[in-house]
Computed example of a mutant assay.
Amino acid sequence: MRSFSTFPDFAEHYASLTSADNFGQAFTAEIETSQLSHHEEPTAADMPDSEAARGCVEQMVGDLFTLFCDTRLAPMAARVAWGMVNSFHKVAQQIAREEDSAARELGELARINDPSEIHALEVEEKQRHCQSLHEALAALECMRDHAAEVYRVETGQPWSAVYGSRTSKSLIASQIEARDFLAARAASRREAHAPTGPVVIVSGGAGWQHHEPIWTRLDCIRARIPSMTLVTTAQRSGTDAIAAAWAAARGVPTVNFRLNRSLGNRAGFDRNKMLVRLAPVEAIICEGSGLQVNLAERCRDAGVPVTIMRDRDFASLAQAAG
């Protein structure tokens, strides 16, 4: 964790954060008027300035570490900052649920064959509401992902949500018919949760703490395969959380393969079979349990290039850095 005696130059300090590149798109108004609630009148107000939004996130989270550093509250900085990132995450989850509800209502209206002007106005209003939520969600998720990167820079650890996913969606064109909008939205959701790019598997123990070798290796793979899709074994800590944080920072789509608990003791091995059936182009497997050993063996048998990372190879480096 950094230590400053004066306030830092935030723009310079966080210049390397790749999530900053996403603000231009996420804060572009895609519809002429926005209506986030049926109880409010449509507004033609602009979206927040993208650079101001980026700077606000950096300063909001970064100032906390500057305030607490070299004080007795320094150990609390990471915990409070985690909550700040989580606030963005929780509001984004709420907006996502509202968008889902609005999309269902829009679908029901779109299926009604009613040529009346009243019905047409109702469809138009519902579509504007749904698209407004979609637009707001993209901005909030962008701010959340950027705040998570600031958290990572300050603490040296990736931020991960306790609950929910961190799948960010891209904005879609606005001036389209209701049914086309829903079809495009569904396609966007499918791509977000089941992307079609070349698959790179990452798996490892929940107690793995060395994020730098994982980020370095993933950066190398992405340089060769820009359209890659990251697939993890969906653990909320350790290797999977580190890889998910990398994907969020780099804008790489992620699929989390959770265990089918109904299979009992076979669940992990069954998941390994499913992962290899995805025909991955590469795998990174960090030291964990017998499940990681099994996955490495299956990948090698399938001819998948595998990078094995063992805790002892990085423990001495971590101690030297500490």
Rank of each mutant, 00 (worst) to 15 (best):
H193S: 14
T6Y: 02
V57T: 11
F23A: 00
V255S: 13
D219R: 08
A318R: 11
I308E: 12
R222A: 07
A192K: 00
L73G: 10
I214K: 05
V252M: 11
A96E: 06
R166I: 12
S237H: 05
K90W: 04
M143T: 02
T6V: 15
V61S: 06
K169V: 06
E124F: 00
F27E: 05
D63F: 02
N256I: 03
A321M: 04
W208D: 10
A249V: 11
R224Q: 14
V61A: 04
E124D: 15
W246F: 09
A74E: 12
R250Q: 13
A243C: 09
G62H: 01
R217S: 15
Q93K: 07
A241G: 08
P8D: 04
L263P: 05
Q209C: 04
F27M: 08
N265A: 14
M143Q: 10
W208N: 06
L64Y: 03
N113M: 12
A249S: 14
A44S: 14
W215F: 12
E191P: 00
G156K: 03
H211I: 05
I95Y: 05
R104P: 03
D270H: 15
T18C: 13
V276C: 06
E41L: 09
I285N: 01
E32P: 13
P305W: 00
L36R: 08
L137K: 11
V57P: 09
M47Y: 04
I176D: 00
L278N: 07
E30C: 11
R111H: 13
V293E: 10
I176S: 00
E177F: 05
I201R: 09
R312H: 15
E297Y: 10
V61H: 03
S227T: 06
F88G: 03
I242A: 11
F88Y: 12
F27R: 06
S174I: 03
T232G: 04
G204E: 07
Q127W: 01
R224D: 10
E40V: 03
T232P: 02
A247H: 04
N22D: 10
D9L: 10
T307W: 12
G55P: 00
H119D: 05
E135W: 08
R2H: 11
T167S: 13
D240L: 09
D311A: 13
H134G: 11
S132G: 09
G204W: 08
H119S: 02
S5C: 15
V293S: 12
R54A: 07
M143A: 15
R236G: 08
L278T: 04
G204R: 03
M143S: 14
Q209A: 13
